Amino acid sequence: MLAPTDKKAATPFELRSLREQVYRYLRAEMQSGRIVPDEYIRLNELSERLGISKTPLRDAIIQLECEGFVTILPRRGVLMNRLTLQDVADAYGIVGALEASVIAAVCDRFTDDRLDAMTAINNGMTALIEQDDFDGHYAEFLEANIAFHNLFLDLSDNRQIKKIVLPFKQRLYDFPRRRYIREWERHNCREHGQLVELIRAGDGQAAADLLQHRHWSFSYYEDYIRQFYRS
């Protein structure tokens, strides 16, 4: 629960801080399934419940709309978007193309230390998959997966890449959280290992092809994808 706002005028810094708190609160509600797809988020009720003005609330909602999580409908409220299979296919195509373009462009910039770090993260992910309570480690697994990919995205000269890619990944895998499919994640970790080896060999094009046409291929993993989004 957010603390009520002070009656005195907030500074721009304080407004940004409150907006970020509201944004994180709404994401947590979506993540946990307390706000579900096709459900309206009513700003008046939420503002009263949280004890805040509508300004930071609207700002947080606008950010969520820009990231694809909600749609603002005038005079009706804010609707949490349902993730369709076409949405998933579109996201896979976008993320795959962007990440492949980065790998092809930065293959010669990898150091042994960075590749070793990618291997260590992937080994940790592989160990998590084999835990008896793998579903209980999904937050840790998702964080590690994003960290693995960020180790090559960080090499890009384009500073906007991660900002574009991250909301797609969050919406695909964490809103709401679902039960992971072990065998699918085993495939993903094996591909991570193959990616590292291709980069070590200096074959940026093969690494890019692996990312775009296998790792982020909707058609290749369609059976797993359909199973995942039914759960």
Rank of each mutant, 00 (worst) to 15 (best):
M1P: 08
L2V: 06
A3G: 04
A3Q: 13
A3N: 11
P12G: 09
L15F: 01
R16N: 09
L18I: 03
L18G: 03
R19F: 00
V22S: 03
Y23K: 11
M30R: 08
S32N: 10
S32R: 12
S32G: 09
G33M: 12
R34K: 13
V36Q: 13
Y40P: 02
L43D: 06
E45Q: 14
T55W: 00
P56V: 10
P56G: 03
R58C: 00
D59P: 00
I62S: 10
V70T: 10
T71C: 08
N81H: 07
L83N: 06
L83R: 12
Q86C: 08
D87R: 12
V88S: 09
D90W: 03
Y92A: 11
E99V: 05
A104S: 15
A104Y: 06
A105P: 06
A105V: 02
D108K: 12
T111K: 13
A117V: 01
T119K: 07
A120H: 05
N122C: 09
N123P: 00
G124K: 03
L128N: 00
L128C: 01
Q131A: 13
D132S: 15
F134Q: 03
D135V: 08
E143S: 14
A144I: 04
A144V: 03
I146F: 13
I146W: 10
I146Q: 14
N150A: 14
F152A: 11
L153C: 12
D154Y: 04
D157E: 14
K162M: 08
K162S: 07
Q170S: 10
R171I: 04
R171D: 04
L172T: 04
R177F: 00
R177C: 05
Y180V: 08
L195K: 08
L195R: 08
L195F: 10
E197H: 12
E197A: 15
L198D: 00
R200L: 06
A201M: 11
G202A: 05
D203K: 15
G204K: 14
G204Y: 10
Q212H: 13
H215F: 13
W216A: 06
E222Q: 15
D223H: 11
D223S: 11
Q227R: 15
F228R: 10
